[in-house]
Simulated scan of single mutants.
Amino acid sequence: MSYYPPLGFYFKVQISGAKSEDDAAFTEVSGLDMEIELEEIKEGGENGFSHRLPGRGKHGNLVLKRGILVKGSQFSNWCKSTLQDGVIGKIACKDLNIFLLDRAGRPLLTWNCTRAWPVKWSVGAFDSTRNDVAVETLEFAFQTLTRR
């Protein structure tokens, strides 16, 4: 059975090795990008072009959005302990997996963010003139991004 093109709304996020998935439901995942920096070298006497050489790989932060959970969750507790303790506490790095699922809930693609740690936790605006869900945004820095 063909799953092309895959649907972008059926996914899950999981802390690698976590036993509970009750708090891993997010409404949006972004930041799954990779690129190679370019180094430009200008050669003396050559004005027609510059040499463009590959540099280091880089990526942005992983951004997860969801409705605010009233009860503390594994993700929330991790963010809270890291961001409130700041540099005086120990930063616990964890691997995060993002799974794009097929219709039966089986992974079609997996992205692994290694040694991730929370760098930002924000809550969307409360507005009495709108009928929106209260949303929290969790942002993570990570060491490497691998697509499998």
Results as ranks from 00 to 15, higher is better:
Met1Tyr: 09
Ser2Cys: 09
Tyr3Pro: 05
Pro5Trp: 11
Leu7Asn: 10
Gly8Ile: 08
Gly8Met: 01
Tyr10Gly: 05
Tyr10Glu: 07
Phe11Leu: 03
Lys12Arg: 14
Lys12Pro: 01
Lys12Tyr: 01
Ile15Cys: 07
Ile15Lys: 04
Ser16Met: 09
Ser16Thr: 10
Ala18Phe: 10
Ser20Leu: 11
Asp23Gln: 13
Asp23Arg: 13
Phe26Ala: 04
Phe26Ser: 03
Thr27Ser: 15
Thr27Trp: 09
Glu28Gly: 09
Asp33Val: 08
Glu37Cys: 00
Glu39Lys: 09
Glu40His: 12
Ile41Pro: 08
Glu46Leu: 04
Glu46Asn: 11
Asn47Asp: 07
Gly48Leu: 12
Phe49Trp: 05
Phe49Tyr: 15
Ser50Val: 13
His51Ile: 08
His51Val: 09
Leu53Asn: 02
Gly55Met: 01
Arg56Gly: 02
Gly60Asn: 06
Asn61Pro: 05
Leu62Glu: 08
Val63Tyr: 07
Val63His: 06
Val63Met: 14
Leu64Pro: 04
Arg66Phe: 04
Gly67Ile: 02
Leu69Lys: 11
Val70Pro: 00
Val70Gln: 07
Val70Cys: 02
Val70Ala: 12
Lys71Ser: 04
Gln74Asp: 15
Gln74Ser: 15
Ser76Arg: 11
Asn77His: 12
Asn77Asp: 09
Asn77Met: 12
Lys80Asp: 07
Ser81Asn: 11
Ser81Tyr: 09
Leu83Trp: 15
Leu83Gly: 07
Gln84Ala: 06
Gln84Gly: 00
Asp85Ser: 14
Val87Gln: 06
Lys90Leu: 13
Ile91Leu: 12
Asp95Cys: 09
Phe99Tyr: 15
Leu100Gln: 06
Leu100Ser: 01
Leu100Cys: 08
Leu101Glu: 03
Asp102Gly: 03
Asp102Arg: 02
Arg103Asn: 13
Gly105His: 11
Gly105Met: 07
Arg106Phe: 10
Pro107Gln: 04
Pro107Lys: 04
Pro107Ser: 07
Pro107Glu: 05
Pro107Tyr: 12
Leu108Val: 13
Thr110His: 02
Thr110Asn: 06
Trp111Arg: 01
Thr114Tyr: 09
Arg115Ala: 15
Arg115Phe: 14
Trp117Gly: 10
Val119Arg: 02
Lys120Met: 13
Lys120Gly: 02
Trp121Thr: 12
Val123Met: 13
Gly124Val: 03
Ala125Lys: 14
Ala125Ser: 14
Phe126Asn: 10
Asp127Lys: 14
Asp127Gly: 01
Arg130Leu: 10
Arg130Trp: 07
Arg130Cys: 05
Arg130Asn: 11
Arg130Phe: 08
Arg130Gly: 06
Asn131Pro: 00
Asp132Tyr: 03
Asp132Thr: 11
Ala134Arg: 03
Val135Ile: 15
Thr137Val: 08
Thr137Arg: 02
Leu138Asn: 00
Glu139Lys: 02
Phe140Val: 10
Phe142Lys: 03
Phe142Pro: 01
Thr144Val: 05
Leu145Phe: 05
Thr146Asn: 10
Arg147Glu: 00
